[in-house]
Design a protein around this nucleic acid. Structure first.
Lengths: 187, 187
DNA sequence: AACAAGTCTTGACATTAATCACAAATAAAA
DNA sequence: TTTTATTTGTGATTAATGTCAAGACTTGTT
């Protein structure tokens, strides 16, 4: 395996070999099969996950058992129920494999040690957090300013591979429309 | 003036007097009157603002000139067009006073110096960025799972003071519904 | 007090999308 | 291949929300 994690970090900040070794030992590897859950609602959220390969959905289930896709997570993404992870509370969302998936992950304790031991990683996480915030803000704005068809096209443009990998009903759930409405957009 | 900035930072991380002095000198103070713009669409975004007192709206104007409120910013909040600020591109949003407002602000350059010179401030900004991301994610989820009436009530519960301070038409714009629909919710 | 500007409510109607129902198409499993 | 499950598409209906229009109410100003 080429080192996906190192490549990923070094898009933002360069590390010496020693620094990277220090980083690397805070992670452990895990593998999951399609349909397995990394997080289930009500669980403790032990880990934050960096996805080496595969595809996941982060899902919130509302009072009437309807599922809403908060995000898809693919190669090179970080994912978890971050509220629960950071506050060490029970998960309100689930994280489930849509494909066989390999991840690197760390606990909150390891995350803190990483931040304390490496100012560069602190910078890295700050950059990631800022980017995540901006992406969420853009999504809010897109839901306010665009109709379902436009949102569909934006998503298609941004992540074309998604559309070969997940059923349209999940895309609909991510976009916040019914699958029937999504189906009618094409025509 | 009691020191709002110090109080604000020390909710997250304690500073020595010297450390705080270092932090403080990276900021400058500005005052604005109601209806004044801190940022206008198309401008360079020179500053990130910490609000000492007052109230602002962050607004995106779409192609058909319709305004969408991305957020309200009140005392103790940070606000800017952060995408434009971090990438040093032109503003796509505007930031306008709804009340007379006093802010502390810094440039991107000062922000970087602050991060480089103070690991504690780096931690502080990381915590803020994480919190901002989580808040945005909650808002996305709320727009997917709740109807306008529920979203209105959530907002009312979270920021009761807003409702004495801004017209309902702006609340409607923030919630993503027309002012007429919002008006009909009460009944 | 009188006016102006801004704000809020309500009705009528149009539009959009959700829901329900079912059939067709596709993919997965036996 | 045959069977079974999953996914997708489409019509009919219903519900929610937007839009347009008018008027009432507030607030601030002169």
């Amino acid at each position: 395996m080429q080192d996906k994690l190192r490549e990923h970090i070094e898009k933002i900040i360069l590390l010496t070999d020693d620094e990277y070794l220090f980083v690397k030992e805070h992670f452990i590897t895990k593998k999951f099969k399609k349909h397995q859950f990394l997080i289930q609602e009500g669980d403790d959220v032990k880990y934050s996950y960096f996805i080496i390969s595969g595809l996941l959905k982060l899902v919130y289930t509302d009072d009437s058992e309807k599922q809403h896709i908060v995000s898809f997570a693919m190669e090179d993404w970080w994912e978890s129920d971050y509220y629960a992870f950071f506050t060490q509370t029970k998960a309100t969302m689930s994280l489930e494999c849509l494909e066989d998936t390999e991840v690197l992950c760390f606990t909150l304790e390891q995350y803190k040690k990483l931040c304390d031991g490496s100012p560069k990683m602190l910078r890295f996480f700050l950059e990631k957090a800022n980017f995540g915030f901006l992406a969420s803000q853009r999504r809010i704005l897109s839901s306010m300013t665009s109709n379902p068809k436009e949102r569909y096209e934006q998503l298609l443009k941004q992540y074309p591979s998604l559309f070969q990998r997940v059923p349209k009903s999940l895309i609909a759930s991510y976009l916040g429309v019914s699958r029937e409405t999504l189906s009618r957009l094409s025509s």
